[in-house]
């Protein structure tokens, strides 16, 4: 009993401390500038002026839309490219596949930032600055995703493929009708992971966008801070809360899948 109380107390205090920055951002987004100056913890009343303010001052809806499409395209691209590769590594016994798989795994050691200078030039030379292509294509092949899906495909019984083959099922049909549907949980984990990490990308969008055409919300936020004076922290916090909401909601919905996916990746790796 006493142990239970202690644990509950620890859980409660830790939650408050950990969640404080987010709670405070929400709280500040409802304050008036005077309340911000007074260093209040809570607003005296809920007012949406800061939200109106920030939506008027920067094209936040446009940034959000761009971020959504960029993340969505990368997510779909990763699911297709990674599942095709993982399928080849499990169901197509060609010569040299161990070697190629090892090569793919080894690329996880390369910090992406070490390759960013030539990648920037590639995108520049292709005329992909300020385009969706420049923001999305470089991220379709994710070695971690190939690894994760391969682990899942390995759990599909070989007998299933053999009997499907007997019935005249082609490789591609088996991929579509069996391998993919049987891996829904891993595909969801990878999809959510891909969407979240792309939504949160910072350095690459900073490099390959220089106007508002396809500016993502993260870079939009940087612009917002740069242009705001210190009196409008409530508007900045309203911007922060607005861009936090989609990912927090997605995280809360998909947490189960992410936990399963990441844990299996970490443990079996």
């Amino acid at each position: 009993m006493i142990k239970k109380i202690i644990i509950y107390a620890l859980l409660l205090v830790s939650s408050l401390v950990l969640f404080f920055p987010i709670l405070y951002a929400i709280s500040a987004s409802f304050m008036s500038p005077q309340e911000i100056y007074a260093g209040k913890l809570l607003p005296s009343s809920i007012n949406f002026d800061a939200y109106k303010d920030v939506f008027e001052r920067v094209p936040l809806v446009h940034y959000l839309t761009v971020s959504f499409w960029v993340s969505f395209i990368v997510m779909i691209g990763q699911l297709i490219v990674c599942s095709l590769s993982a399928y080849a590594f499990v169901f197509i016994p060609f010569k040299g596949r161990e070697l190629i798989f090892f090569l793919f795994l080894a690329t996880m050691l390369i910090p992406w930032e070490a390759a960013m200078i030539p990648n920037f030039l590639t995108v520049l030379n292709l005329g992909w600055i300020n385009t969706y292509a420049g923001l999305t294509f470089p991220f379709f092949a994710l070695p971690f995703g190939i690894f994760l899906l391969r682990q899942h495909f390995l759990t599909i019984p070989k007998e299933l493929w053999e009997s499907a083959q007997m019935d005249g099922c082609s490789r591609f049909r088996f991929y579509l009708k069996f391998a993919l549907p049987l891996s829904k949980s891993s595909l969801s984990a990878l999809g959510i992971y891909g969407f979240l990490t792309t939504w949160n990308q910072y350095l690459w969008p900073l490099l390959v966008t220089n106007d508002d055409t396809v500016r993502t919300v993260q870079i939009g936020l940087k612009m917002l801070i740069a242009n705001e004076s210190s009196s409008s922290w409530n508007a900045v916090m309203a911007g922060v809360v607005t861009i936090l909401l989609p990912t927090l909601i997605l995280l809360f919905i998909g947490l189960k899948y992410i936990r399963e996916g990441l844990t299996s990746g970490a443990l079996k790796g």
Binding site: A25, Y202, Q218, S230, L251
Partner: peptide, 27 residues
């Protein structure tokens, strides 16, 4: 558990901006 996992859903720009405010010398 959901609360403890939540910072995974916080982007680097949003998280850093909140701390920029928390670290503000006077406000």
């Amino acid at each position: 558990r959901t609360i403890f996992s939540s910072t995974l859903g916080v982007s680097v720009a949003a998280g850093a901006t909140i701390f920029l405010f928390l670290f503000h010398p006077s406000l």
